[in-house]
């Protein structure tokens, strides 16, 4: 394994352990490591690859595969995937068995109540990080607002449809 592959594994393992609050919460750190720290991607590429991940079903951070692939081919993709999912999964496995031992501990409640707003703050920061790469010009602002209002007020429509429709809109109107 060469240095680049090792770095891919290292970066995504670190992100895995830090991903308290899920994928969106870790986006600013991912952006700064992947773009600023290692120069693996440009801002626009990061936005594009994040967009690819949004089109796919399941966990919303599978885009780490594409980042790994971009840096170092299929091996890179595999290492990014294992790095990003293995540490957190092992922690879940161990902690869920321990968790029951703390049933009734008042600190468990404190932990949850304290971490909840921190996670919201991190998610907001993640949204800002994506906005900084994805919002360029009036059309994208309007599109973001329309999708927000659509998801917020029309609960019956699957959010994925808004994402796909926006991709189609971009394809025809933003070239």
């Amino acid at each position: 394994m060469n240095d680049t592959n090792l770095s891919i594994f290292g970066v995504f393992s670190l992100l895995s352990v830090l991903a308290i609050g899920g994928g969106t919460a870790v986006l600013p750190e991912m952006k700064s490591l992947v773009i600023g720290g290692h120069h693996w991607l440009t801002d626009d590429q990061f936005r594009d690859i994040y967009g690819l991940g949004q089109v796919a079903p399941g966990p919303n951070m599978l885009m780490v595969l594409v980042i790994g692939y971009h840096v170092s081919g299929y091996l890179g993709a595999l290492l990014a995937f294992i790095g990003f999912f293995l540490p957190a999964s092992l922690i879940s496995l161990g902690a869920s068995r321990l968790w029951d031992h703390f049933e009734g501990s008042p600190w468990r409640q404190s932990l949850q109540m304290g971490m909840a707003p921190l996670v919201i703050g991190l998610m907001a920061a993640g949204t800002i990080a994506i906005a900084r790469t994805a919002i360029e010009g009036a059309t994208t602002v309007v599109l973001a607002i329309v999708v927000f209002l659509g998801i917020w007020f029309v609960k019956k429509i699957n959010p994925a449809l808004f994402i796909l429709a926006s991709g189609a809109f971009g394809f025809f109107a933003l070239q």
Binding site: R47, D48, Y50, G51, L52, Q54, V55, T127, I130, A131, T133, A134, I135, E136, T139, T140, V141, L143, A144, V147, F148, F162, I163, A165, S166, G167, A168, F169, G170, F171, A173, L174
Partner: peptide, 9 residues
């Protein structure tokens, strides 16, 4: 992808 990115925000 610009469209998808804006929608993601």
């Amino acid at each position: 992808l610009v469209g998808v990115g804006a929608a993601s925000v």
